[in-house]
């Protein structure tokens, strides 16, 4: 019996990403945000999650992908981290997928830049590649 894991998946700029389901606290639709002046541009702002103040990180900016269109409202994938909940802003939410660990591959060489550091593994699914993100690394921003 090989190990299998569940991933919460989402799309960013057409790419298919996943985060281990256990790390995900919840997925919520777009929330109004308060921007934080002087903060790194990766941080889109602060949202009020039922009385809890949560930092929202724009994954497009974090992964150095082109900016989202003005009319396109991002979704929040709220993940649990060592420093409390953090929201990751993504384009669109996918399904929760269960994957056998043996389809796991190393990140392809074509994956470059920041993405290479944040993607811990790649799973080859039928239609597409799933890029799995390391949440702790993703929410740790080096001095901007």
């Amino acid at each position: 019996m090989s190990d299998s894991k569940q991933f919460c998946t989402f799309f960013i700029n057409g790419l298919f990403f996943g985060i281990e389901v256990l790390k995900v606290q919840e997925v919520i639709r777009y929330q109004e945000m308060t921007s934080v002046p002087l903060a790194p541009s990766t941080i889109r702002g602060l949202i009020n999650l039922r009385g809890q103040i949560v930092t929202a990180i724009d994954l497009r900016r974090r992964l150095e992908l082109p900016a989202r269109g003005e009319d396109q409202l991002p979704m929040n994938v709220v993940v649990r981290t060592d420093d409390g909940a953090v929201s990751l802003l993504v384009d669109e939410i996918g399904d929760v997928v269960e994957i056998q660990d043996d389809v796991r591959e190393r990140p392809p060489e074509t994956l470059r830049g920041v993405a290479r550091e944040l993607v811990t593994g790649v799973y080859k699914l039928k239609e597409r590649l799933l890029l799995v993100l390391d949440t702790e690394k993703t929410v740790t921003l080096t001095a901007a």
């Binding site: 109004e32 308060t34 702002g45 602060l46 103040i53 990180i57 409390g84 929410v139």
Partner: peptide, 22 residues
């Protein structure tokens, strides 16, 4: 404020206002 804001010393924290916004 979360650790992502450590470098900014202009803010002491955040609060939620009566209208629910931060």
């Amino acid at each position: 404020l979360a650790k992502q804001f450590k470098g900014i010393n202009c803010f002491a924290g955040a609060t939620i206002m009566g209208d629910g916004k931060v």
